[in-house]
């Protein structure tokens, strides 16, 4: 089954991305990605641009509203996602614990919803 690891990062973590790629942030992520691929569990995923680049659209009572930035105002923001093919939630939690963001932010593990998807794409 497939799981999404949703990566939550603080403003500091987002800021540390700007460096040249020789930093520990990038090094840890590069190694983690390599380990996922080598273990044959990586399905897909991407980092997201910093939260300030987001724009949120909502339509309420027929009126559309557009807002700068992400909707939620919390300390940690969604910074990326990774989709993994794994036999169980236990295995997914193990990979989440190895994720660099588990140490400096938070990693939420969510199963994908293939049944819902099937109903939508049919």
């Amino acid at each position: 089954m497939q799981f999404a690891l949703l990566i939550y990062e603080s403003a500091d973590a987002f800021a540390s991305r700007k460096s040249d790629g020789a930093d520990t942030y990038t090094g840890a992520w590069r190694a983690y990605h390599k380990a996922l691929v080598e273990a044959g569990v990586f399905v897909g995923g991407d980092p997201l641009e910093v939260p300030e680049t987001g724009t949120t659209v909502r339509i309420k009572e027929g009126k559309q509203g557009v807002q700068d930035g992400p909707y939620a105002d919390t300390k940690e923001q969604l910074g990326g996602f990774t989709i993994l093919e794994l036999p169980s939630l236990d295995a997914a939690l193990e990979w989440a614990a190895r994720c660099p963001a588990a140490a400096y932010g938070a990693v939420e593990v969510r199963p994908l919803a293939p049944d819902t998807k099937r109903r939508i794409v049919e």
Partner: peptide
Amino acid sequence: AYDRAIGLAEDPAIREFLLRKR
């Protein structure tokens, strides 16, 4: 090999140690 070890590490202190050695 360091990349594999770093990518599989759970303990951030060990991750940093290996990143330095790499």
